[in-house]
């Protein structure tokens, strides 16, 4: 049986579910803490016990991305691959790839200074949604309803002035029901999907209290998810979809280290099992 390693930095319910399922399936399974792992340019695969395949499950995006680069340097198969993690971890790269591969996606505008961002807002009109290009759980995602709100948010960005604060990602506010769809794609299949209803505001993240409701995996949903998955490079992905009143499905995000405790409550298929079987079979192929 192939040896499976789960690289983590904080054990959430998802990592426990993955470990338990892998052991139940009979795999030699170990958890490896990224925080206490040292790798160098001189390292060799045999210096470590990374097994035959690694599931990278760090909650810190940059930590996960960089350890993935090191694991690939050691010729260890990792899910997701570095390229995929990089494409999904940065919302701007994701949007560009989705559009490039003809996946319906909200119109998104990129500006590289606060002056240009204001210019975009005034030209396109309000509301637009501003999102940090790196980050999750809906944090920093703000509906800019008017010039006053926009000025306030932009001023805060100027005060914090981190390198990523200078990249302005502004997205059209989709006219949609107060919910979105989260689908989990594993390889060439959608294994589970749910509606996430808003817990009050315009955000629908489960991390913010959005309620999971089962969603039928129709052919249209499967098709758009597969296109989105291919656009970012494939693997184990959480695809976020909105239902635009006029255009139908639009993909707004693809997540790399997918959280699934909400979806696992309503999914018919066993999510950790599907993830493990895909990783193992892809690695030994």
């Amino acid at each position: 049986m192939p040896k499976l390693r789960i690289v983590f930095d904080r054990v959430r319910l998802e990592e426990k579910m993955l470990e338990e399922k892998a052991i139940e399936l009979g795999h030699d399974t170990k958890m490896i803490d990224a925080k206490i792992t040292n790798i160098s340019t001189e390292s060799k695969k045999n210096d470590f016990d990374f097994g035959d395949v690694v599931l990278e499950r760090c909650v810190s995006y940059f930590r996960g991305l960089h350890i993935t680069a090191c694991l690939e340097f050691l010729d260890i198969p990792v899910f997701n691959k570095f390229e995929v993690a990089n494409n999904c971890g940065n919302k701007m790269l994701t949007s560009l790839l989705l559009k490039k591969h003809n996946v319906p996606t909200p119109k998104t505008y990129f500006s590289f200074s606060s002056e240009s961002a204001v210019e975009t807002l005034e030209k396109q009109g309000y509301p637009l949604v501003i999102k940090p290009i790196i980050g999750s759980w809906g944090r920093g995602v703000i509906l800019l309803k008017d010039r006053e709100t926009a000025d306030a948010i932009i001023e805060v960005r100027e005060l914090t002035d981190g390198p990523l604060d200078r990249i302005f990602y502004l997205q059209e506010a989709i006219k949609r029901p107060p919910r979105d769809i989260r689908a989990i794609a594993v390889g060439d299949q959608v294994i589970a999907a749910m509606y996430r209803t808003s817990s009050g505001g315009f955000k629908t993240n489960i991390a913010l209290g959005g309620e999971p409701v089962p969603c039928e995996i129709t052919k249209d949903l499967e098709d758009i998810c597969m296109k989105a998955s291919k656009a970012v490079g494939g693997g184990i992905l959480g695809i976020d979809i909105m239902e635009d009143e006029k255009r139908g499905f639009v993909v707004h995000e693809v997540n790399n280290t997918v959280e699934f405790k909400g979806l696992a409550k309503v999914a018919k298929r066993n999510i950790p099992k599907e993830m493990i079987e895909y990783a193992v079979s892809s690695a030994v192929r």
Binding site: D9, R10, S60, I134, S136, N255, T257
Partner: peptide, 9 residues
């Protein structure tokens, strides 16, 4: 560790 700016999915 405290929740970082890059934490999440």
């Amino acid at each position: 560790e405290k929740v970082g700016e890059d934490w999440g999915e």
